[in-house]
Amino acid sequence: MTAPPANAEPQKESMGIDPYERNWIRFSIVLLVVFLTAVTVAGFAMGFQVPGEEARVDPATITEAGPFANPGVRQIAPGEFEVYVVSRTFNFDPAEIVVPQGATVTIYVTSQDVQHGFKITDTNVNMQVVPGQVSKLTYTFDRVGEFPYICHEYCGIGHAAMFGRVRVVPPSEFEEAGA
């Protein structure tokens, strides 16, 4: 780790890597490989998924035809639900989603005007909502309770008030409500 004397023999061109540094570089490469494996395994094998390419829509006509014309929850199979959410300045339609505990819910969100955000508190559901595009994620609600969904992209002066909530109720209560 010492400098060559000022008038040493001309030395050869080289990287001149210090032994400690060489080990550090090896260590960094190993760590990098570990990280890459972790993201890949998490992404593909364990099924942590992010929204992808779903469908495109015309923001001008979504309220007239297609699934977003009737926003809300629909049961598609036992324990399986889908919900279509329209975002607009400054509310979500529906503003409340009620599902039974254990329900697997596929959520589709789009926007009628500007960009919005859709994040359900305490869950992994987090989507950018972009006019012209449909964002989609699936989530299983295992815990009973209230989970606000909050708009997390600036959308105008009323942005801070834009939210809705998921109510996850015990299955018995859900049936009584006749949903």
Partner: peptide
């Protein structure tokens, strides 16, 4: 990563490059 309209494969490629 959480945008619609970008396939997940490309997101993964950029995730690895980011690393």
């Amino acid at each position: 990563f959480v945008d619609p309209g970008v396939p997940t494969a490309w997101k993964w490629i950029h995730a690895t490059l980011t690393y």
